[in-house]
Design a protein around this nucleic acid. Structure first.
Lengths: 187, 187
DNA sequence: TCAGAGGCTGACCGATCGGTCAGATCAGTG
DNA sequence: CACTGATCTGACCGATCGGTCAGCCTCTGA
């Protein structure tokens, strides 16, 4: 704990990240202004924009680990040979991501459609389509497509709401749900 | 078809409603400005606000039938005596609503958290909580709560995306999903 | 001692938002 | 003809947004 306040603080970068994470989790990305973040940090809005090129750059840095993990999952799914294996890997992998990054996912709270068109999430769109396809067991049947999209969107939309559950509890519940609900691929 | 253009149009009210419905469905409530609606109608923004007190009044009028049907479903669920009956009525009733009003639900595309706090949707919050409780079979178990919320949010979030499916096809797919996924209440 | 770099601020910018207002236009009525 | 009420417009308002900029302060090293 430093007593001197006027000291320049090179760690402001991380403080802004932490403050932005709290505000994004509370009110979403679009619902949080740069002024909100600055107020939470205790500095000026210009200071925030001194450490980050723009608002999107803050989100990008916060989401980087989650995006990287999602890309890695996408590659693992692509390595599977049968639709049943792909479905199983997709389900287990997605639940793992949803639990580990549930705080980050909550940032986007329903803003997926708009945010997915920003350059940061350029290829996330295609990844999510392949994820849905794997969930559906590579089937074109209406029931399989509906099931896949409802479950994927439902988990993404709600995984941040279970703050009272441990990672283990939430993961078990989600995995159980997917095992019951997903239609086994026909072969 | 009237040739005279300067003729006052008493049906402007309905034209605004129709235009707003198209814009809301395309870009969401918050993503649609009053100017967007006015441009779609072909009149001034002030004309839109002459026919409607404010932006929220347009949404209120568009959502009225859906809200009324949701309240009616809430009452029907409350009349059931056992948790199994309540769960079945809730599932079938919610699927029916999601299919019939999928266009209106798409207006809110992920803006549920913010919009639910507006006066129009004041008691929708409580109704949705009772709906989740009925889905969960009045259970407090983590897996039942997670399942209920994921399915409810997932259906609400995605039911507008299946424009290529008939009401019958979408309804069957959603009902099949709920029957597989919902945990039967313990007695 | 002083130049310079890093860190930060307040003032400001243009765009967009929902909403207001005075007044123009026009159909119907007496 | 005069008047009224409904419909509609353009101009404007205050608030908020993301972002820019000139310059100030403090610390450091030659």
């Amino acid at each position: 704990m430093l007593i001197l306040m006027a000291r320049p603080t090179p760690q402001t970068h991380d403080e802004i990240l932490a403050a932005a994470a709290r505000r994004f989790a509370a009110t979403g990305y679009r619902g949080t202004s740069l002024q909100d973040i600055a107020t939470e940090v205790g500095c000026s809005k210009a200071a925030v924009l001194y450490h980050f090129a723009n608002k999107e750059a803050i989100l990008t840095e916060l989401m980087a680990p989650a995006i990287e993990a999602l890309c890695s999952l996408d590659e693992r799914i692509a390595e599977q040979h049968g639709p049943a294996d792909a479905q199983r890997v997709a389900a287990e992998g997605f639940v793992d991501l949803a639990v580990r990054f549930r705080n980050e996912i909550a940032f986007l709270r329903g803003e997926f459609p708009e945010l997915l068109q920003q350059p940061v999430f350029a290829h996330i769109q295609q990844i999510s389509e392949r994820l849905i396809d794997a969930f559906a067991g590579h089937s074109e049947r209406a029931s399989a497509r509906v099931t896949a999209l409802v479950l994927l969107a439902g988990i993404a939309e709600t995984c941040g709401e279970f703050a009272d559950l441990t990672d283990q509890e939430l993961g078990d519940a989600l995995l159980g749900l997917l095992r019951r609900a997903l239609e086994p691929p026909v072969h």
